[in-house]
Computed example of a mutant assay.
Amino acid sequence: MQQFIQAAPGIRLWTEQRGPADAPPLLLVMGAQASGIGWPEEFVDALAEHHRVIRYDHRDTGRSTWAYDTDPYPISTLAEDIVTLLDKLGIARAHLVGLSLGGMLSQLVLADHPDRVASATLMGTNALSTRPYTAPDGTEVPAEELPGIAPEVLEFWARPVEDNGEEAELDRRTEHWRLLAGGQLPFDPAWYRELERRIIAHTGTYTPPSAHSRANPDGLLRTEALAANRVPVQAIVAPTEPVFPPPHPQHLAQCLNAVRVTEIAGMGHALPPAVQGPLVSAILAHTGAVS
Rank of each mutant, 00 (worst) to 15 (best):
Y192R: 04
V44C: 04
L47D: 09
C255H: 01
P24D: 13
P72L: 11
P20T: 06
Q254E: 14
F4I: 00
M30G: 02
P247L: 13
Q107S: 03
F43T: 02
D22V: 05
H95T: 02
A127K: 00
P208Y: 02
D69S: 12
G103Q: 00
I37R: 15
E145D: 14
V275K: 01
T223I: 09
F43V: 03
L27H: 04
P114M: 11
G124L: 02
L220R: 08
A67V: 05
R178A: 09
D81F: 06
V280S: 03
P242C: 09
P186R: 05
I75K: 06
R12G: 05
A46R: 10
P246S: 15
M104R: 05
G138W: 07
P209M: 07
F4T: 04
E41W: 11
E194G: 11
V97K: 00
I82M: 03
A120V: 02
E140A: 12
G90R: 13
V243R: 03
H212K: 02
L256T: 15
V290K: 07
L27E: 00
G268K: 02
A270C: 10
Y56S: 00
R131M: 10
D171A: 09
R198D: 14
D81P: 04
A67D: 15
G10V: 12
D171E: 07
A127T: 01
G31P: 01
Y68P: 01
R173V: 01
V243S: 14
Q250R: 12
E162N: 11
P273A: 09
P242R: 11
E263D: 10
R260H: 15
T121F: 04
L146A: 09
G165T: 07
R18G: 10
G138N: 15
T134E: 10
L185R: 10
M104L: 13
A289N: 04
P278C: 04
E42R: 15
A235T: 04
A258V: 00
T287D: 15
